[in-house]
């Protein structure tokens, strides 16, 4: 039943994304075809998760899991149901209250099940169309699963279409730049250097129209 609802929801999202936004995807073939894999993207808008999930085949939608903050997405019962059942998020406790357990444990388990994780290492949507420093959580995750490819994806335009704090969707074409997968280099600092460099390169691929 919820599987069916999820399928219908993402079908509708796909139609809306195609008509209202329109994506221009570079190197789509570099996206993981199967799990386990980690997709790492910059975060500007609630649309980010939906659009990244639209890049995957609809048949695999249940195996694509956005990693999201529990304090935001589990606020109410209804939202929690929608977040976990329809979006399929893995809720993560940001507060650090339950120190006894590794907060990333559900992510490790998902990878072991062969699922595809979507991560936003900036932590929050922040200022639209500006990148904040990447947090290191993703490096801890990758360290525990060194064989899992990490695919960096840079998006532009989604923060213009629906920035933080706004409910009015204004159509813009959006650019998606997929980078080459990063394989575990052996240490967390090296991994973060590679990831930062990948986003640096992807974000410079095109000159974007100013938006201030």
């Amino acid at each position: 039943m919820t599987r069916c609802l999820q399928y219908l929801f993402f079908l509708a999202v796909r139609l809306a994304v195609t008509l209202l936004l329109g994506l221009n995807i570079r190197r789509r073939e570099l996206l993981p075809k199967d799990g386990p894999a980690i997709i790492v993207a910059n975060h500007n808008s609630h649309l980010d998760t939906l659009v990244l999930m639209c890049l995957m085949p609809l048949s695999k939608i249940a195996r694509v899991r956005p990693v999201a903050a529990a304090d935001y997405f589990m606020r109410t019962r209804w939202l929690a149901w929608f977040s976990t059942r329809i979006l399929g998020i893995i809720p993560i406790d940001r507060s650090g209250a339950a120190r006894s357990r590794d907060p990333l444990a559900p992510c490790h388990e998902a990878l072991e099940r062969g699922e595809i994780l979507i991560l936003f290492p900036e932590g929050t949507r922040g200022q639209p169309e500006e990148m904040a420093t990447l947090k290191k959580g993703v490096a801890f995750l990758a360290a525990k699963a060194p064989e899992v490819p990490v695919v960096p994806v840079f998006t532009h335009g989604l923060g213009k279409a629906l920035p933080k704090g706004s409910f009015l969707l204004v159509p813009f074409f959006c650019d998606i730049f997929v980078g080459a997968p990063i394989h575990w280099p052996g240490s967390r600092p090296d991994f973060m250097t590679q990831l930062n460099a990948a986003f640096e390169t992807l974000s410079r691929e095109k000159t974007f129209a100013p938006w201030e």
Binding site: G22, P128, G157, K160, P163, S166, L168, V170, P171, F172, F173, A209, P210, W211, E212
Partner: peptide, 26 residues
Amino acid sequence: SFLALKEYFSMIPTRRADRRVLFWAY
């Protein structure tokens, strides 16, 4: 017309404060 206008707005510099105005233009 919609696709062309969307392309135009995506291509030119716009101001964040004008989001609502762009919506009216659509």
